[in-house]
């Protein structure tokens, strides 16, 4: 097992509404951790806490022993909502993260990196397009490229394909696996789709309904690329589905 990078031990309340209770887990380096839970169980809240966009009401989320803070740590976030900036071209959008992290977007080095990630997500030739000119699947590729560009130590994906149709979603899953195998990263991937979870994950954490607690944990050691209809795949999928549906 690789070393532990992220340590989570916290609860979250909004006013008197308890959203996350005793969430306690660790993320290991180069792991593809998938957090799965029913709709409306506070998954996005958890994602924002992991990315340092908000602070837990008690406990901590640390990265290498320090409270997670995007101003200090190299974390990236892929949002559930369409997040392309309408007034930036694909190129400028992808360079944004690099620029914030202190790279001058005009240097050859930065340009080379942008080119590299654009190629990685298969958007070559679309550099000068505006978001309104490309499809929903391509917009999510932009968001992924933007997140990958900074070579993050920790990459967060909050239902990145939730808005896509089933076909595109399936293709994007294959794509994300291909990218992850090329550029290994520590990933926390949040979804409500169990099949997607089993297809992608090295480890799965199952959340309960509101207030969310950790219900179960699974290590998935199936060989890649995974067969969606293989007996082991179906068994694990059925097991998690059952855990998700049982009340309590």
């Amino acid at each position: 097992m690789e070393r532990e990078l992220i340590d989570v031990d916290m609860s979250m309340k909004f006013d008197n509404l308890s959203v996350l209770e005793d969430i306690k887990f660790k993320v290991h380096e180069n792991e593809f951790l998938v957090i799965v839970g029913p709709t409306g169980c506070g998954k996005t809240t958890l994602a924002r806490l992991l990315g340092g966009l908000s602070k837990p009401s008690s406990g901590h989320v640390t990265i290498a022993g320090e409270d997670v803070n995007p101003k200090i740590h190299n974390v990236s976030f892929v949002f559930q909502e369409p997040s392309c900036i309408p007034w930036l071209t694909i190129w400028d959008d992808i360079s944004m993260g690099l620029e914030i992290k202190g790279n001058n977007p005009q240097t050859a080095e930065t340009k080379a990196r942008i080119k590299e990630v654009i190629k990685l997500v298969g958007l070559d030739g679309f550099e000068e397009y505006f978001p309104k000119q490309i499809s929903g699947g391509m917009k999510q590729r932009v968001a992924i490229a933007r997140a990958y560009a900074t070579k993050p130590d920790f990459l967060l994906m909050d239902e990145p394909f939730g808005h896509l149709d089933a076909q595109t979603r399936y293709l994007m899953q294959i794509e994300i696996m291909r990218i992850w195998e090329r550029e290994k990263k520590t990933v926390a991937y949040i979804t409500n789709n169990i099949e997607e979870a089993v297809y992608l994950a090295t480890r799965i954490i199952v959340l309960s309904k509101l207030p969310a607690r950790i219900k179960a944990e699974h290590s998935i050691n199936l060989p890649r690329p995974r067969d969606l209809t293989g007996p082991d795949f179906l068994r694990i999928r059925a097991e998690i589905t059952e855990q998700c549906e049982v009340v309590g």
Partner: peptide, 23 residues
Amino acid sequence: THIDVPRSFGAKRLYIIRKIVIP
């Protein structure tokens, strides 16, 4: 969400105003 994008990279307030709010 457009504000969260630079924020998730740790952008400063002024950068967000300049790059997101004003455009």
